[in-house]
Simulated scan of single mutants.
Amino acid sequence: MLGFSVYLDKDLTADDHNYLLGMRNAGFNEVFTSLTGLNDEAETILKRLNQLTSWCKDLELKVMADVSQDDLHYLGYDLADVEKLKTLNVTGLRINDQVLMRFVSKLSKSMWVSLNAIYLQPEDITHLKEEAANFDHIRALFDFYSQAETGMDESWFKKKNQWLRKCNLETAAFISGDGVKRGPFFAGETTLESQRGVYPLAAALNLKDLACSNVIVGDRLTSETIKSFARYTKEHAITLHVVDEESSLLEENHWHNYLYLAQDIVRLHCEGKLPELEAQELPLDRPAGTISINSNGLNSDEVHITKRNLPADKEVRIVGKVCASECSLLSHIEPEQKVVFKKLEK
């Protein structure tokens, strides 16, 4: 699952609807929203939620609403009254405080339930089994941490996530977006501190490598990053934006990674032969993200992208550089995977 966030701290607008549409078209299928920490009247909050769920129904998007038991009471609802909770028209609830497992079990038979991953302990899993909970409808969701330096340690996350998966629970975590950040810290809504500020698609692929079942973008994405997600979900392609491009050969050709992973470079090949280019008169260092073509006629259908800083090579011609923020994608390019180059617009 790929999810994204739309919050209810203000009235929804046409821009919000367009964002929902764009994200749906890019392959996202679930919306995360929050009913916690809102200072508005209950009637206003429910009106905004109704607008969101109505749009999401039309767009075939699921909706997961973050709540606490106190928030539900404020809105006139109770975890014990499942039939009334169903009138919220959400796909599921994310209960962000500790809760009796008998309520979770009952709720799981009617809708999705996401539980705060850090609270879950072995005895909770035992109680869920005793209450005959529907584990197909229960997910462990790791929280996001808005303030820099408060995010989760990756090794601790990995261990907790592995245990939850062994308990037959789906897991989910947040990555920060590269668009407008939420206050009060404006540092990105991310689960892992190591991913704060990391290019969103790279962060999502890293969570996949860590066996996290579901990814939720905590902040807005820019339009170009939405397009990059779309190419990944629809074509399994990695998009790299290029700066200092010397030649149009990168955008004009169809590129795929080799059958194996090279240690120091991404070794891309195309179907046709590339133009012969002379090496630079003065060989240049090749920091991570440097794109080059051989000038000696060997492997003439290839370009190489450095994964790490490499020394100058008199046999190559540098033809461009990957945008610095996207260099984190290079380690996630798989054998035979399609790579698309796009010129970075100034």
Rank of each mutant, 00 (worst) to 15 (best):
A288K: 15
V322L: 11
L330A: 00
T306M: 00
M101F: 03
L169R: 07
G179R: 02
D97T: 07
I216K: 01
Y19L: 06
R308L: 15
W112V: 13
L100S: 01
L169P: 04
K234D: 14
N309A: 12
V242P: 05
S105I: 00
Q121R: 13
N25W: 01
L115A: 13
T190Q: 14
Q162H: 11
T190K: 12
H236Q: 15
L274I: 10
G197Q: 05
L85Q: 04
T290N: 09
I293T: 07
Q121P: 05
S325I: 14
G151T: 08
E154T: 10
I125L: 14
Q121M: 09
S146Y: 04
E60V: 08
L164Q: 09
N257K: 00
F142E: 04
L46M: 05
A26E: 04
E41A: 11
D58Y: 04
D11G: 12
K338Y: 08
H304R: 08
Q195I: 01
F229P: 00
V63A: 05
E251D: 09
I95M: 01
S194D: 06
K234N: 15
A230F: 02
C323W: 10
V99W: 04
A324T: 15
D81I: 02
M152C: 09
S228N: 09
L141A: 15
T191D: 02
T239L: 12
R94N: 05
Q121K: 11
L261K: 07
D9P: 03
D9K: 10
S176H: 03
F186S: 02
E193W: 10
W163C: 05
S247C: 09
S194G: 08
E131Y: 14
D9Q: 12
G3R: 02
I291Q: 07
L268S: 12
L115S: 13
L282D: 14
E251R: 12
D11R: 14
E278M: 12
H241D: 13
L250P: 03
P275Q: 12
E131W: 11
I118K: 01
T171K: 08
L164P: 04
A203F: 02
H17D: 08
E224Q: 10
S108K: 01
I118C: 02
A173S: 11
G218C: 01
A187T: 04
K273H: 10
V319K: 00
Y19N: 06
A65H: 04
F174T: 07
E315Q: 15
D313M: 08
A65R: 05
